[in-house]
Computed example of a mutant assay.
Amino acid sequence: MAQYKAAVIGLGQIGLTYDFDPKREKPSSHVFAYHLNPRIELVAAVDVRADQYQALHKIAPSVNFYQSMVELLKNHSVDIISVCTPPVHHLSAIQYILQNTDTKIIFCEKPLVSCVDEANLLTQILQKGNRLLIPNLSRRWNSGIQRVKAHIANGQYGELQKIHVKYTRGIHNTGSHIFDLLHWWGGQISEVQAIKKIKTSADYDSDPSYTFAFLIDKNILGFAEAFDDEQYYLFEIDLYFSKGKIEIRNSGDDVFYYQVGEHHLYTGFKSLYLERYENQLLSESNLGNAINHLVNILDGLEHPICTVEHGVYPLYVAETIIRSFNNHCSKERVRL
């Protein structure tokens, strides 16, 4: 079977250092995910910080280290490149890779670019070629979250009617996952209304957090509430259907499925009863699953389940929430 070569641009948390956290599932970084995959040879990595050389070699001792992406790409021809730099550098890195290499897949961290203007430019650039840019909207790779999608698609719990979200850490950081999942499960968000701005640790990265209401395709009502992660971390989603409910808890580690039955207290009314639950879903590595998916794409066995369109969509929603807040919490249409 073919062996593919990979490189990683940026050795921060998701690029490398998450795998030094003993509580995280392994692999949790691009470096370790490539290093563990038997079909991939991780040949090189780059970071502007010279001290990341030692951290890299604790996990992957034989990988070549560079402080310049240009130098790395002069010395190595690779099939997959992971872009794990801060978002402000994503567009320039992607442009350089497309213009100067034959790399088949660019696997890019979220948010895909830093603003809507860059998203529009990126879409135009990619229309001129046939290479793949795949965003790492990581929950798409999780089998438990994929089962939630399947249950919604087959109508097992009836019509999706309302959505409640609780989150921390920014409408670009955590928001990328929220908006992608809502889009994947329910359809496009058509309208938003910011309600209040909340302080979180993402403020240090200029990524604001808002409590806001939203509407999906004119008939699914939603409410998202931001919390300060210095008090506690939250990522929870409740999906209310005409015939049941699905709860996403503990950052997606637990999923609870409820069905409708006769109310145990009141005649003529119905209530929700726990049907089943799945736990420890994050014990499987989302990044490990993603890299397996990239290999299958290169083998011609699968099509991408996450596209550029999915990657830029959250930016339009985030921009609209900011516009709503700046316009005295007005209702705003999401313009795609």
Rank of each mutant, 00 (worst) to 15 (best):
Y273Q: 05
Y266S: 09
S176N: 11
K245L: 12
P87E: 08
A93C: 14
L239D: 08
S62D: 15
G288W: 08
C84G: 11
A150F: 13
Y157H: 07
S324G: 08
S82I: 13
V308C: 11
V8D: 08
A60V: 07
R140N: 12
D203N: 15
D217F: 03
T200G: 10
V116A: 04
I125L: 14
G158D: 06
V78M: 04
I134M: 02
Q280V: 03
E284G: 05
T320Q: 05
I145N: 07
G12Y: 07
H151S: 11
G158W: 10
A153K: 13
A213G: 12
I125P: 00
Q146A: 15
I40D: 06
G261L: 05
V312M: 02
A202N: 07
I106Q: 00
G222Y: 05
Q259Y: 08
K104F: 02
A194R: 00
Y4R: 06
L272I: 00
L301R: 13
K166S: 05
S190P: 01
G144E: 04
S114V: 09
E118Q: 15
W141G: 01
T267E: 15
G15E: 05
E159D: 07
C84R: 11
E230Q: 12
A290Y: 02
S82L: 12
I125S: 00
I297Y: 06
I322E: 11
